[in-house]
Amino acid sequence: MSKSPFIDEIPPRSWLGDVHLAAVFLTRLPLPDAGMGDLARSMRAFPLIGLGLGLGGGAIAWAAGSVLPPLAAALLCVLSLVLATGALHEDGLADLADGLGARGDRDKRLEVMRDSRTGAFGVLALIFSVGLRTAALAAIPLGWSQCAALVAACSLSRALIPAAMQVMGPARGDGLGAGAGCPDATIAATAAGLGLLACLAGLGLSGTLGALIAALAAGGAVVWTARRALGGYTGDVLGAVQQATEIGILLAAAGMLS
């Protein structure tokens, strides 16, 4: 495990501290300052933050769906998740799409990904991300089914971020991806286990198998592409992994629950 530059001010192995730091990093909720902790270690709590986001999004979808058409309610749910996370993962997806769409070598792609401006490929990636998630949610029956699908998608998609870091190295020596440090195999396994438990609670065994297959296929495609085009991961690549796996899980849930 590479050393994180963050100074550890959270009690060692504190789950509460890790949940707090993960929530501050993954969301824009008005939380107390977490201080500077070990971000790599806190990744074991990523699926727990996803669980909370899924429950919140499910509640909004349920309330909106009682007075609005399914498509409008689903779009409001996706909007609530984007606002809650500050479009953290969507930003990564757009930057990766722009980088992959750029002409040139690896260094040119990484340079484009650093650019704060969003190009045509990034805009299209965001359109398809929001559109596919909204369409999938609208196809799932209102109520517990939608909530279960959101819990599974939000939790497992974030649980697989540490796993993706296990099979890739950092594409560059600086930036958020490298600065966070790489979680060890125990952290990755813990996060994956918690994500699978959230799926089992919401979708059952058969639904979890379908969601896992979809997540691995979608996330694996991003990992394979990033390794070939960039030589490893950046913070943007990890955001794109989350987006791809969330889309895959919601589409799988829509197919099983609609």
Rank of each mutant, 00 (worst) to 15 (best):
E9D: 13
E9C: 15
I10T: 15
P11I: 05
P11T: 07
P11F: 04
P12Y: 07
P12H: 09
P12N: 08
P12R: 08
P12I: 09
R13G: 14
R13E: 15
R13C: 12
S14I: 00
S14A: 01
S14P: 01
S14M: 00
W15F: 13
W15Q: 05
W15A: 10
W15K: 02
W15L: 15
L16F: 12
L16W: 13
L16Y: 09
G17Q: 04
G17A: 09
G17T: 06
G17N: 04
G17Y: 02
G17W: 01
D18L: 00
D18R: 00
D18K: 00
V19H: 03
V19P: 01
V19F: 10
H20M: 05
H20S: 04
H20Y: 05
L21E: 02
L21C: 04
L21G: 05
L21D: 01
L21K: 02
A22L: 12
A22T: 09
A23S: 13
V24G: 09
F25M: 04
F25P: 01
F25I: 02
F25H: 05
F25V: 00
F25W: 07
L26S: 02
L26P: 02
L26W: 05
L26H: 03
L26T: 01
L26I: 04
T27D: 10
T27F: 06
T27V: 10
R28K: 14
R28C: 13
R28I: 11
R28S: 09
R28P: 08
R28M: 13
R28G: 08
L29W: 08
P30I: 04
P30W: 04
P30F: 04
P30M: 05
L31D: 13
L31N: 12
L31W: 11
L31V: 10
P32F: 06
P32E: 03
P32D: 03
P32R: 07
P32Q: 05
P32W: 08
D33A: 12
D33M: 09
D33H: 14
A34C: 07
A34R: 02
A34G: 10
G35C: 12
G35A: 11
G35K: 06
G35F: 12
M36P: 11
G37Y: 02
G37M: 05
G37F: 02
G37L: 03
G37C: 10
D38I: 03
D38C: 13
D38M: 06
D38P: 11
D38L: 07
L39A: 11
L39W: 09
L39Q: 13
A40W: 04
A40D: 07
A40P: 10
A40I: 05
R41M: 14
R41H: 14
R41F: 12
S42G: 07
S42H: 00
